[in-house]
Design a protein around this nucleic acid. Structure first.
Lengths: 331, 331
DNA sequence: GAAGTGCACTAGTACGTACTAGTGATGGGT
DNA sequence: ACCCATCACTAGTACGTACTAGTGCACTTC
């Protein structure tokens, strides 16, 4: 209840109250190794810090130690998938457990504003899109070396497992006996590269199985592209469609049903992300679920490995599974 | 290309290169008012800073000036509505335009971890849930006085306009001639207070219109509560249902349709949030759209007002509108 | 020509922390 | 009795910035 207006409590205040030097306070509070402090003094310092409600000034700490406890997550400027939200939460809390703070940031392509990493100078930068050469050079010039995915080889955090999603979609439909597939993707130009990536994985499975590659169509809920695509697929003998994500799957189903093609009787559909939409839609949508919980924890582990030298755990496996629902049935 | 390993470029380096004192560098770069610097010197300093790629050390700046440029957004630990995502993006960029950084944070109820505001000591804290007395006391003890919504009266950022959503839902159904209403909400206990709030707004409209208050039912996609609720409503003569959000609306529709009650012919349904689900669902769901773009800009303006004394704009109005779709028709 | 005024700068310091180098005291070994 | 090691601390400094309190100089005013 000491109303010392304006002045914040510093380590010096704690030192004065505990009757020791500021250095001792630092040793106690930071558990500095290589320093021996008597149990009695330690207790006195701790008590004083508690009573004064001492909180170290982060800016001063960062200035002195030359590093802060910020992890910057750079998100792409494209529509976010539902599952990312879980991922963010898990990542936030896994890092917070070690005193780190997760800051998210979406750079706008047209913006000339300083990227956030120049302002925050985070201990680690995680990119959910890959960084450009210029970005990496910029970061390195700022002394930021902990970058995920690592620019000089070594593993990407989660992309390995993400790759198995499209594979699962294709294999699921093949195992149901479908031989002629369609692929549905949203028209959003920002997604182009990702669509290509997923599509290639699907193509590879088809090639391996000795069936033709899927017929690709863009589908949108704002027009009748869903119905048009469904008709074309039907014409071509397609019996099952792989959708880029659950929303696109819903668009395909809506387009098909509205033009008299039954799902799943006439056309099976598989989505991706296992979003709430997939569970709620009528018919409910078979989809690929990614265990964001474990992936988030793994990403946090990589970040802490880079920042603090924590041991690096093995990459998780089996984080991607297929959830069977109503929208896909055997041929 | 000077590979001065490890050492970062400081204002002193710039000063040396430009042949001036470090103070002058500060004056030029910060456009300190009350200081006159010749045009020639200014240009020389700017050029030197550019060449050395000088970026002020944020921690040092924060330490010296006593304030940083972080705005902390505290998000509640409840399922996020779709619209929030847009809101976040707008807020992030509106603040970034003035050099501020938006950090989001979700405290976990069971967690004993230090709240993020103690670590970051942000210039402004924005809460999308209201803060507890303890939280506010904690912030004040850390010298954080810029809190939104303001603990000592004055306006909340967006809640005013959020309040009109439930009102719009009810008025829309009344205008379609419905006299006996149902209210559907998700069972999530974390949402209880918000459901209560929205429900009361709906109740008020009903009372004003002289019709009975809606019959409230919890609805969930995991069981047949949707079908059960639909049956009970029908029994009671309910012809239209207000849903807490679009997901709940979808649950109601799914439950009704699966048990033979047609939507909208037998039962009209109105959602809230105008999420992608509302557009895609079959039937598509009439819903309340909130203009997150404008609300985000307004929230940023409040934050900048508190942090920098920027002028406070008038609160936006008409940010909430009802989008008519297939799920609600005249009685 | 003395005093005053404004310009264009500089020297130097404080912010709060983490940590290095050092200091006195105690104790063990020979 | 002497030396050295260990313990338990303390004095003091550097981190990079923003800004206060000057300083020297040209130029005007009476």
């Amino acid at each position: 209840m000491t109303t010392t207006v304006g002045r914040r409590t510093t380590a010096a205040d704690v030192a004065r109250k505990a009757g020791v030097s500021p250095a001792t306070v630092g040793f106690v509070l930071n558990r500095t190794k290589g320093q021996t402090i008597s149990e009695e003094t330690r207790a006195r310092v701790l008590a004083a810090a508690q009573q004064l409600n001492y909180k170290p000034h982060q800016a001063a700490r960062a200035l002195r130690s030359g590093r802060n406890k910020i992890v910057l997550l750079v998100l792409p400027d494209w529509p976010l998938e539902h599952s990312l939200r879980t991922n963010l939460e898990v990542l936030t809390h896994a890092l917070a457990a070690h005193g780190y703070v997760l800051v998210t940031f979406t750079p706008l392509p047209e913006s000339t504003a300083t990227p956030l990493w120049a302002i925050l100078e985070p201990a680690v930068v995680i990119g959910y899109a890959t960084f450009s050469k210029e970005d990496i050079a910029d970061m390195k010039s700022l002394g930021i070396t902990n970058i995920i995915p690592s620019p000089d080889a070594t593993a990407a955090p989660a992309s390995t497992d993400f790759a198995s999603g499209p594979r699962l979609q294709a294999e699921h439909l093949l195992s149901l006996g479908h031989q002629r597939l369609g692929y549905a993707c949203p028209p959003d130009p920002r997604l182009r590269d990702f669509i290509q990536e997923r599509l290639q994985l699907v193509n590879r499975v088809c090639t391996e199985a000795g069936i033709p590659q899927p017929i690709v169509r863009q589908v949108n809920y704002q027009d009748d592209s869903g119905a048009a695509a469904a008709a074309e697929w039907r014409e071509a003998g397609v019996t099952a469609v792989i959708a880029y994500n659950d929303e696109t799957a819903a668009d395909v189903i809506a387009g098909a049903v509205r033009s008299g093609i039954r799902v799943p009787e006439d056309l099976s559909v598989v989505g991706h992300d296992n979003s709430p939409l997939a569970e709620r839609f009528m018919p409910s949508i078979s989809s690929v679920a990614v265990d964001m919980e474990r992936l988030g924890i793994y990403t946090a582990a990589i970040a802490l490995h880079l920042a603090e030298g924590h041991p690096l755990p093995d990459p998780p496996s089996g984080t991607t599974t297929l959830v069977r629902r109503e929208s896909a049935i055997p041929l």
